[in-house]
Design a protein around this nucleic acid. Structure first.
Lengths: 339, 339
DNA sequence: TTGTATGCGTTATCAT
DNA sequence: ATGATAACGCATACAA
């Protein structure tokens, strides 16, 4: 079942069939209809490989992420795929984990597959310990096809590179949230985080911004890094607590960690939000699970993901796009804060 | 940069290059090395389209699901993709939502893309309101390529179909859990569920099994269907509560609903697990978020997903496989139950 | 062991 | 408006 069968059935040449298939105007209405009905009758669909061979495109983009089961990334992937398919692109998913080598080979795999573009979902691709040439594989790839970072940032102003970043204004969001806690009278605020990704460090900066603006000291004991799970967050606060360092608020870089904070408070009979205010990040489903429910910073996954795809589509269509697109976050107030 | 360039550089014919590429034994060690070094020097990678055109395979499988942001499905997708890539297959993700038409067009899209196989992830593809010919699109597709249902079940014993189901013994799991509650003295057990998917109805059957085995009546007011979120679950229990129907245990078809049950209890000062025992399903991260933490049935996403891929790989390799592969669930005891 | 030639199913460039 | 034909880059049957 190929284009020849259709051309035979319709009594035209394969060129005409191809023209109909690709919406070429140079076809009379009569023949177009004849061809279309032949296509329908034979239930013909063009062979992607042959088409790809000629056009060098498969109408697919690669989505790379560290872990698609992470709640934030799972949402990002959902929105990315939905938007991509809206533009008739398929999504090829690649979970790389945190190993640098795996990332490179994943990227290479996608390049070899001749995808039309690549989306790097999640801030984990840009992190402190990447090293000087840690992003070379991205830069190089961006010379071959457009690459969009979702919630990560890498400068795309190098010549010959098509590298774009779409992200949320994390720093400003945390700064604003921290400022509100300070205004509400909190003085001993803990900042709880896990990774050293671009986004994570950015949030941390936002926290210190707020402290500086308020003229409050940023004490290193209150910047607490822990493993990325409930127990890690809780444990970190336990340690601080037993060392008798007072704290009256917690800002977490992820709802998961904020859940740990709620559990810590519960275990010690500390009242939330009266004695301890807690703010999470991502505004994920986890924020609705605790008691009281978490106030959380919404970093707009859907919006960011959608814009990332739109941007990519535009570039794939030969258009241009700004290398940086920043979306504002939104504080969703629930019951772990008083303001 | 193609196979001709490599052959020129290595001073051999393209046939020899192809042989080296495909691990054909009929190449002398000397020429093989010469070719390999030429490949490396030119940084050559074969064109997937040309290769696909000849072999009619793209080393990719489609993963269809209703919603990749659902926690269970997100996990399934993660494990599926990981295992697929372990066997050098890429994953093309397609989220269909709940619309039947979208499912069919998604399936067609994947068929047109000439994927090597398709995995239908999640029980939502098989559901009560599918209608008599509701699965025809799956059956027909299975005539063209192997299809594996993850956590759904469709009979694959039709001739010419390669249709397989890998799933968890949900019915037995719920039956066992309910039986344990009954043994512990609970008499008024609520079964809380949301969908009418294969898996969902199966769990419901497991619940009635347990009641029947214990000689207890299955009262329809205690089989409560609600929307698939925390508020829905909570609301459903509120309704039951205000109608003064006593209940002392809840089994939920999903951790999300169980969270709603915990919240309901908290709101009314009902002690968990003393006055109300609660059991969730999926053993997801949500089970760790509540206070007390949820006892939950672990339906082994990782195992099921991994086995599904292994089965598919086997079939793709020309081997045969059982049409049905069932994995046992496991009850993870935490603090919303007393036993 | 190696090379030649053909087929795979399109798209696109010419003619007509 | 339509048709013939040359790419596209690989695998492979067959020849040497």
């Amino acid at each position: 079942m190929n284009i020849y069968d259709v051309s035979k059935k319709a009594g035209v040449s394969i060129a005409t069939v191809s023209r109909v298939l690709n919406g070429n105007a140079n076809v009379s209405e009569k023949t177009r209809e004849r061809v279309l009905s032949a296509i329908k009758e034979l239930d013909y669909t063009p062979n992607v490989f042959a088409r790809g061979l000629g056009l060098n495109t498969m109408k697919a983009v690669g989505i790379m992420c560290t872990d698609s089961s992470d709640i934030y990334l799972a949402n990002a992937i959902y929105y990315l795929e939905r938007e991509l398919r809206r533009f008739n692109y398929n999504a090829i998913l690649c979970c790389t984990g945190n190993d640098a080598g795996a990332r490179k080979s994943c990227m290479q795999l996608l390049l070899d597959k001749r995808v039309d573009g690549i989306i790097l979902a999640g801030s984990q691709f840009i992190c402190r310990d990447a090293g000087v040439d840690g992003y070379d594989y991205i830069i190089e790839a961006a010379r071959e096809l457009p690459i969009v970072l979702v919630n990560g940032r890498l400068d795309g102003n190098r010549d010959g590179c098509r590298l774009y970043s779409v992200l949320c204004a994390d720093r400003e969001a945390v700064c604003s949230a921290a400022s509100q806690l300070i205004e509400a009278g909190r003085r001993n605020i803990v900042y709880l985080y896990s990774g050293t990704s671009y986004s994570s460090l950015n949030k941390l900066d936002g926290f210190t911004d707020a402290m500086n603006q308020a003229g409050l000291p940023v004490r290193p004991e209150y910047l607490r890094q822990c493993t990325r799970d409930i127990a890690g967050a809780r444990g970190s606060l336990e340690a601080l607590y037993s060392s008798r360092m007072p704290f009256d608020a917690v800002i977490a870089s992820d709802d998961m960690l904020a859940v740990g904070a709620v559990k810590f408070a519960f275990a010690h009979g500390i009242r939330v939000p009266d004695d301890l205010e807690i703010i999470g990040y991502n505004n994920s489903v986890l924020a609705n699970c605790t008691e009281p429910e978490l106030t959380s910073i919404d970093n707009r996954v859907e919006l960011v993901s959608t814009r990332a795809v739109r941007l990519l589509i535009q570039v794939l269509g030969g258009g241009s796009a700004p290398p940086l697109d920043i979306v504002a976050a939104e504080l969703i107030k629930r019951n772990t804060t008083k303001f």
